[in-house]
Design a protein around this nucleic acid. Structure first.
Lengths: 212, 212
DNA sequence: TCGTAACTAGACGGTCGGTCTAAATGAAGG
DNA sequence: CCTTCATTTAGACCGACCGTCTAGTTACGA
């Protein structure tokens, strides 16, 4: 799924008939996502992103006012992309609530395997880097985590109704634990180049769920 | 505990009588630890490290063959420092085994509070950055985690003997879960500038331990 | 006192992020 | 059709900074 290099670009305003052509801005965002999930923000130069898709620097600063703005856009984008994936799984009412979470775990694990554990989670990456990032990133990253947490908590409440977990369990807190641990597992999986950490954490989480 | 700036340095080989004086190399490592736990490896320039302690660039490359070598030294150093801290807690036989782990958690939490959540775990930081780091770091980081895991597993076995956790629990795996989740919690605590993630994860972990 | 090892000063080349100007092209209006 | 203007690309350029390296300074041992 690598972003393919576009053919050499013609100068000037491009013809409107380009419905099949991927827009430059879109191209930059996709490539940015790829690179930043691998290397993070500080370690990535704009030029590397540009090089991947054969877009010159002038275009970048036409579409984005700065690297910081580009990063914020990527966070937004990744948050939406991920929330959609999450909903696809957690909202799948043909499965029992906890099986929906299991299916998300399987999907995410598969995603890491597919890229040979080179790519992690953009939000986790940037969170870790926060010490070196523009302060504007912090709230966005926090909000993104909270958003995911809300979606998971809803699923856990359903699990509660279905009797899969204890009725007095704090679903909000359990959802928080999941994302805390999951990010740790992704980090570790990237380091070890192995799906083991993901399995180990998920396994423990499901056991712990039962214990409330 | 910030590394204080040394007095302006004289040129040339320093007099041997410097027992009270902190050695330059030592100074650089301490400052490096401070900065890298905050900002990671890629985002940190050696000039920032040098500036903190008033050491000129030439000295750096006298003591370390490269930034990479410096980083490897820091990993080694941090690993030892942390293992010692771990042993102090987990080997404290005046406490029940699980209380020893609790005391480590409290100590580590306190450490993060003290630095206002600006500093995280060096190993976790670099692990996340691995995509942009020299490949030589990978094994060191993995080994460090494994080392911590072994130490914790020993403590958990004691807990098992003391009947604090189920006799058939897989202590190796539980130790792995702890470090996976703990790193995630540290990441999140840094992002949120709050001890809550640490508490939330630790709380869940201890409950899950009981459930085996 | 001289030679060498230990250490420092800072120049150097290279890269990066961001800006800026020029050029190319399509769209809209007459 | 032809002019004008908005849109987008090309890439030179600048200042900042990074990691490396060489020349130089100083202490120590013989």
């Amino acid at each position: 799924m690598d972003v393919e290099q576009q053919a050499p670009r013609r100068r000037g305003r491009p013809p409107r008939q380009r419905e099949n052509l991927i827009e430059t801005r879109e191209l930059l965002l996709r490539a940015g996502l790829e690179v930043l999930t691998e290397k993070g923000f500080s370690a990535t130069g704009i030029e590397e992103v540009l090089g991947r898709v054969g877009v010159p620097k002038g275009s970048f600063y036409h579409y984005f006012s700065s690297k910081e703005a580009f990063g914020l856009d990527l966070i937004e984008r990744y948050g939406v992309f991920f929330a959609r994936k999450l909903d696809r799984h957690l909202g799948n009412s043909s499965l029992a609530p906890l099986d929906r979470l299991r299916s998300f775990v399987a999907d995410a694990t598969d995603g890491m395997v597919r890229y040979e554990f080179r790519r992690g989670c953009l939000i986790g990456n940037l969170g870790q880097e926060m010490g070196a990032l523009p302060e504007s990133f912090r709230d966005r990253l926090k909000e993104t985590f909270e958003d995911w947490q809300v979606r998971l908590a809803a699923c856990l409440r359903e699990a509660q109704k279905a009797g899969e977990i204890a009725p007095d369990a704090d679903t909000e807190q359990l959802a928080a634990v999941f994302w805390i641990g999951w990010e740790g597992a992704v980090l570790r999986a990237k380091l070890e180049r192995s799906a083991k950490p993901l399995e180990v954490f998920a396994g423990f989480f499901f056991v712990g769920l039962a214990a409330g």
